[in-house]
């Protein structure tokens, strides 16, 4: 056991070094963390409230009190971006987390039990892949109404298939390994075997897939809000801030209202992707 631990920590140190050497991944991580922290500690960085109109200061270009200008109601764009980031990032992270959670559970069950259960769940995943995602989201949005919670639910039940595939395939491969058979012989409960013994071995690709999904869901939220079926428009997510600026009058006259949120989304997603790629190089080299 001792030996095993030091080996593991060696691996860890090696991985960290490998990650630190990957410049893009480091840049990605730093940018991601900066944006994240600024959003979380928004009140430290801005004194304006995101929802407070100031009718005497409408559509001001970036200037000293309002470093990114103000919108049509005179609200400070910088503070809206920061407070909006809280929602957007939260949606991306939780959506991806729950999607992966479903994927892991179903993948483990399908891969471990095999046979009928496996083919039933695989069929289910095929169905979810066949119904066009957009239509599914539109319909679910109409069924449950527009709210952040519902959007998360929709993301979770439409975003589990990648993780499911990874976990299931790994489980099928690992099921035959000696140590699993040994555990079974010792009479360990199936749940323990699945989640305590096999699962840790497949966590790396799952973590990578989840990271990629965070970026994907942030983009999805923006896209859905853009066609008016995402988060209720009163909530200042990045997608909604951008959506509020899609009229041509805004596009041609008030660049800061649409360029700023667009660039922020792009930069954040870019950073998450770089970070995810770096993670993949370290954790899951063969998936490249």
């Amino acid at each position: 056991m001792e030996l095993n631990k030091s080996h593991a920590s060696n691996m860890f140190q090696k991985n960290v070094r490998k990650f630190l050497r990957n410049k893009l991944a480091m840049i990605g991580m730093v940018v991601m963390l900066i944006i994240l922290l600024m959003c979380v500690f928004a009140p430290v960085f801005t004194s304006y409230r995101a929802d407070q109109p100031d009718f005497s200061a409408r559509t001001q270009p970036p200037n000293l009190p309002h470093i990114l200008g103000t919108d049509k109601l005179g609200r400070d764009v910088f503070s809206r971006i920061l407070y909006g980031g809280r929602y957007s990032i939260l949606i991306g992270v939780t959506g991806a987390f729950f999607g992966s959670l479903i994927g892991v559970i179903l993948g483990a069950i399908a891969g471990y039990f095999g046979k009928l259960i496996d083919s039933a769940i695989v069929r289910l995943s095929e169905i979810f892949q066949t119904v066009p995602n957009m239509i599914l989201i539109l319909i679910l949005g109409a069924v449950f109404g527009r709210s952040i919670g519902n959007l998360l639910f929709i993301f979770a039940i439409t975003g589990w298939m990648t993780t499911f595939r990874i976990v299931r395939n790994e489980f099928i491969a690992l099921k035959g390994e000696t140590y699993v058979q040994v555990c079974e012989a010792f009479g360990m409960s199936k749940i323990d075997i699945m989640f305590k013994q096999i699962l840790p071995n497949v966590m790396s690709p799952v973590i990578v897939a989840t990271t990629v999904n965070v970026a994907h869901f942030i983009l999805s939220e923006a896209g859905l809000s853009f066609i008016g079926v995402g988060v209720p428009s009163a909530t200042p997510t990045w997608g909604n801030i951008l959506n509020a600026a899609k009229s041509l009058d805004v596009i041609s006259n008030y660049w800061w209202l649409w360029v700023v949120p667009g660039v922020v989304i792009t930069v954040f997603v870019l950073a998450v992707n770089f970070f995810g790629d770096g993670l993949r190089d370290v954790l899951d080299p063969k998936q490249q």
């Binding site: 407070q52 109109p53 109601l73 109404g145 527009r146 008016g228 209720p232 428009s233 009163a234 509020a244």
Partner: peptide, 21 residues
């Protein structure tokens, strides 16, 4: 935008409000 402003004004008198389209 008008609704955002309405929600703000109602908030000022302590009335919580949200709107749905």
């Amino acid at each position: 935008d008008f609704m955002d402003a309405i929600v703000y004004y109602l908030g000022e008198i302590g009335m919580k409000a949200e709107y749905t389209v």
